[in-house]
Write a protein that binds this DNA or RNA. Sequence first.
RNA 1: GCUGCCAUCGUCUAGCGGUUUAGGACAUCGCCCUCUCAAGGCGAAGGUCACGGGUUCAAAUCCCGUUGGCAGCGCCA
Length: 493
Amino acid sequence: MTDVRVRFAPSPTGDLHIGGVRTALFNWLFAKNKKGRFILRIEDTDEIRSTETSVKVILNAMKWLKLDWDEGPDIENLRYSPYYQMERKEKGIYQKYADELVAKKFAYYCYCTLEELDDMRKKAYANKIPSKYDGRCRNLTLKQREQKRNEGKIPVIRFKMPDTGIIVLNDIIRGEVKFNNFLLDDFIVIKANGIPTYNFACVVDDYLMEITHVLRGDDHISNTPKQIHIYNALNWNVPKFAHLAMILGSDGARLSKRHGHMSVLEYRKEGYLQEALINYLALLGWSTETSQQVFTIEDMKQKFSIERCGTSPSIFDSAKLLWLNGEKIRSKNPEQIYELFIDWLNYTGNDKLIECWDTKLLKKAIFLERDKIRLLKDIPSLVDFFFTKDVDYKEDAVQTVFLSDKLKSIAKFVLIESSIRLSNHQDFSAISLEKYARDLAIEKNVNTSQVFHPMRVAISGRKQGPSLFHMMEIMGKEEVVRRINVAINKFFK
RNA sequence: GCUGCCAUCGUCUAGCGGUUUAGGACAUCGCCCUCUCAAGGCGAAGGUCACGGGUUCAAAUCCCGUUGGCAGCGCCA
């Protein structure tokens, strides 16, 4: 059995989107599962829309996602180089095979103008017949061609589609899909500018790069019969195809700007983890027998198979992605979350935010709040009160916990007592502090919450936050007492 | 319009003819835990398996048709 070789072949005409990532991911997983090779090829044959920036963005996104490629850009001395189609075009790779097609009468020169073609399409639509090229240039004589050329017309090369018969695509996911040759177009193989079209370049490269399996979105399924015809005409082995069902937006239409995030890097900015996005996307169109939801990357590599990919399209559900992100964060230790957070700060340019924050305290604070973090960007607002010298006393907290008629006097008592007693408290551990607070409640004959809440607000300025005594422990005696005194002076003088 | 693909709780899905009173996950709701918010535990609600015909002793599962959704129909990829 030959080794598996798969590729992801994006066109650099924009950012890397969710659908693209999913395609890249499934190819990557398949390669890893089969101990094969994952190839990245840049299909930059769209002269107008391809940009260098886009190449960089895609490469960066792939790197962030840790979808590493065995062959492709930025890797030296590769057998199948180059991996940019325009570089390959410069080497005459495509023209050579196009000429071969013409020589073998599988293709011909076409001199039709854009206007003529547009006309044809409109008529086909109006007459409710299949829209395709009518083949008027198929049998031009040498003389006719010469004349056209003299008129200054530059030809394209078209593939001559058989008028009869059917072609069968044997898709790994969908099984047999049949197409009637008559309905297939005499598609263009080489454009007038000498650049190959997608349907041709893709086939030539997949053949030359010895691609064994083509995994792609099913929006490509109608291209496949055309491509198979090229393989056959050139007498090449046809790779195995697998067409993945599309990922749709919440309204059931193709994912687009309207559905919010487009670029992968935007997910990174929001504070999603690479592994969460990967895990979530794997769930869209692939499943295990047990319907397992949470995977490590290793686990996914081990269990992935094309046969278990589904046929029906799925709708992107950001609520589930969010849950999964929290799930991944909860599985990390303090050091890991801290690292992730720092990476995120650097990436988003928010690193100044924590300039004055003590690293040791930050790690502890983050870990205390770990279960609440769903996105990396949640972290600052969850822990910032540990570091701000001027506690921001929330109006709502002050009103309900400090100043309501019912609780005012007890709150005052708790704070004043705590100010005195805590400054003499020897063991500032969470356990000891909790005992202190509970004893105070018993002593004063009130509910524990009537003691806990005022302390929480005095120390953090908020009603919600981490476990009170752990929070006090990591903040330290001096700061805790200081804050309590600030609160007394501010609200109870 | 033509061609192709698809169809199980709101969403992602398990299911490959009998073990299914259709299982899991997210979201929703309730209870428990509890110093708050989360997390966690337990539970509930939610599906006429799109519809209609077959085949079969037996169908979510196989076949046909209908309907609906989506995709493609470029000198874009």
